[in-house]
């Protein structure tokens, strides 16, 4: 924790040093995510609902995924650079430190300009929560939980992908397919997709469990309590998957696995 504090302090100091660029970057990184929301908003002003969900309700889904993404991209920058670290051989320098490699990746970099994404996501979410009539203290607590869990789940999925890079040395294209595409899909009500994609988003890359299922339960679209528990289940179940894959990948890298 001490390490993390030192890093956050140092990064904030160095990034905020160029004030104008810093603010411009925070703002502009937020608006590209906002454009995705605006598109849906434009479409849904012409229609009553999307698969039975109003624009306000969809806004809640979008905001959970985007906030989670913002948290991940702020603190998980090291995982994003895994491909580069492996290709340049710089991953070696992580192994000469007395902490675990995953921990070291987490402190590889902190990117505060991604917080613009979080700001826009919370604005969109608040607007959705207030207008869809679910505003209450318990819901706000649940929402905060879901945002944090979304951050953790996205982190876990990216750990799996980073581990894959131990074998493939390249994972940026895989990232588009397994994270970017599914992240976008999980910001819509899953019932508009065919069962195949819905199952993938539930059981394989379980981003849907963090948005669609719990919010469905809260909005009374389902009575199944599993829907509410789904986010906790998927985050916990992903832990052993990440840990085993990462350890196996690392063994391969250090040359005991092959």
């Amino acid at each position: 924790m001490e390490i993390f504090k030192t890093l956050v302090k140092a990064s904030l100091k160095s990034q905020a040093g160029y004030k104008f660029n810093f603010i411009l970057d925070i703002f502009s990184s937020g608006i590209i995510f906002f454009s995705d929301f605006l598109i849906i908003a434009v479409i849904l002003t012409n229609f009553k609902s999307l698969g039975g969900w109003t624009l306000h309700e969809v806004a809640i889904l979008i905001s959970i995924i985007d906030s989670g993404w913002a948290i991940y991209r702020t603190f998980g920058e090291g995982l994003e650079r895994m491909q580069e670290l492996l290709q340049t051989g710089r991953f070696d320098t992580l192994l000469i430190r007395p902490i675990s490699t995953l921990k070291h990746l987490m402190i590889h970099a902190v990117q505060f300009r991604r917080l613009g994404i979080l700001v826009q996501a919370i604005i969109v979410g608040s607007w959705g929560i207030i207008n869809s009539g679910v505003f209450s203290l318990p819901f706000i607590i649940l929402y905060i939980f879901l945002v944090i869990l979304a951050g953790i789940l996205i982190l876990e999925i990216n750990i799996v992908l980073a581990a894959v890079a131990f074998w493939t040395l390249k994972n940026d294209d895989l990232l588009v397919l397994t994270v970017y595409a599914t992240k976008t899909a999980a910001s819509y009500p899953l019932n508009i997709f065919n069962p195949f994609l819905k199952n993938i988003l539930t059981f394989v890359i379980p981003l849907g469990t963090i948005t669609y299922f719990p919010i469905s339960f809260v909005l009374g679209k389902t009575d199944n309590i599993t829907a509410l528990l789904a986010p906790f289940l998927s985050v916990v179940l992903m832990i052993p998957v990440c840990s085993i894959l990462w350890k196996t990948g690392l063994k391969k890298y250090t040359g005991t696995g092959s």
Partner: peptide, 30 residues
Amino acid sequence: VKNIGVVFGQKTQLWWDLPVVDTFELLISI
């Protein structure tokens, strides 16, 4: 590794975006 120091001429072990002194402080906590 607590008792060894390593320098790779071709690979930096410093934090690219941070000032040198912050890298040192980070290593102290690590």
